[in-house]
Amino acid sequence: MDVFMKGLSKAKEGVVAAAEKTKQGVAEAAGKTKEGVLYVGSKTKEGVVHGVATVAEKTKEQVTNVGGAVVTGVTAVAQKTVEGAGSIAAATGFVKKDQLGKNEEGAPQEGILEDMPVDPDNEAYEMPSEEGYQDYEPEA
């Protein structure tokens, strides 16, 4: 019985440690998101679009440190934060509304985080759909 109880105690310690790591990862992701939003706020009209992409990228980098179902929630929060940063930029006159959601080359930025393969159960990952990809044929 002692062996059984000791095993359960060790398992509990492992769960607590994993929860603490997840909590730490979420806190880091939130900190990076805040950094990115402050970065966007300090940019001029020309830099705002690039700044919004930076927020998304920093958040995406930190999301990889967070495991399990938390990833889905962090990704949703990050996307809403990026959308909010863009709205703030438009409201303050840093950028025109028609410039939001495009990178410096004018290509749409939507789907940055949505296409990231995420499995809350950590069982399997699927690649994003290939609808947006084109076949590449090298020139002879």
Results as ranks from 00 to 15, higher is better:
T72F: 06
M127L: 01
G132C: 04
K6V: 02
M127Y: 07
A27H: 05
V77T: 05
K10Q: 10
E137V: 05
T81F: 06
V15A: 08
A89V: 13
A11H: 00
E130M: 10
V3E: 01
V66C: 03
G86T: 10
E28D: 08
M116H: 14
G47N: 13
G67T: 06
A89W: 11
D98G: 10
D135V: 07
E105I: 10
Q24E: 14
G132V: 14
E105W: 03
G101H: 11
K45L: 11
A11F: 15
V118E: 12
M1S: 15
G31K: 13
V15W: 08
A56W: 03
H50G: 11
E83I: 14
V95S: 03
G93V: 03
G132W: 02
V71M: 10
D121S: 08
Y136V: 08
G93M: 04
V16L: 05
Q134A: 07
E137F: 03
Q79R: 11
V82S: 13
T81S: 04
Y125N: 10
V26A: 05
N103H: 06
K43P: 00
V26D: 00
V15T: 02
K32I: 10
N122M: 15
E28V: 14
K12V: 13
M1G: 00
V48Q: 00
V66G: 04
G14Y: 10
E110A: 09
Y133A: 09
V71G: 04
M5A: 10
Q99D: 01
P138W: 10
E61I: 03
Y39L: 04
A124W: 08
V55I: 14
G51P: 08
V63Q: 00
E130D: 15
E110Y: 08
G51K: 09
L113W: 07
T81P: 02
E83D: 05
E104C: 06
K96S: 13
T54Y: 04
G68I: 07
T64K: 07
M127T: 04
G36T: 07
K102A: 00
A56E: 02
E139C: 03
H50S: 09
P138S: 12
K10W: 01
Q62V: 09
K34C: 02
G93H: 06
K97V: 03
V3P: 00
K34A: 10
T92R: 09
E20N: 04
A27S: 10
E20L: 08
A90C: 12
L38Y: 15
V48K: 00
T81N: 02
A56L: 11
G73E: 15
H50Q: 14
A17S: 04
V63T: 03
Y133G: 04
V3A: 03
P117I: 10
A56Q: 05
V40P: 00
A140R: 07
A17I: 07
Y125P: 11
E105M: 13
Y133R: 03
G31V: 12
A53E: 08
G47R: 10
K23N: 01
L38G: 06
L100A: 10
D2Y: 12
A19W: 03
K80V: 10
A56D: 02
G51W: 10
E105A: 05
N122H: 08
K96F: 07
E13I: 02
T33S: 05
V52Y: 04
V118P: 13
P120D: 04
A91Y: 03
V66L: 02
E35C: 15
G14S: 04
K80A: 04
T81I: 12
K32F: 03
Y39W: 04
E61K: 07
G7S: 14
V71L: 04
P128A: 07
D119A: 12
Q62S: 02
S42C: 07
K32S: 14
A76N: 10
K21S: 10
D2G: 00
G93K: 15
V40T: 09
E61A: 02
G132D: 04
G68Y: 15
T92H: 10
D119C: 12
A69Y: 06
V52Q: 01
S9I: 12
E114N: 13
V37H: 00
I88G: 05
Q134I: 10
E105L: 07
M116T: 08
K10V: 03
E35V: 08
I88H: 04
G14R: 14
V15L: 13
K6L: 02
A78L: 03
P108R: 09
A89L: 09
K43G: 03
V70G: 02
A19Q: 07
V49K: 14
K45T: 07
A18W: 15
G41E: 05
S87W: 12
G84V: 14
Y136C: 02
N103Q: 07
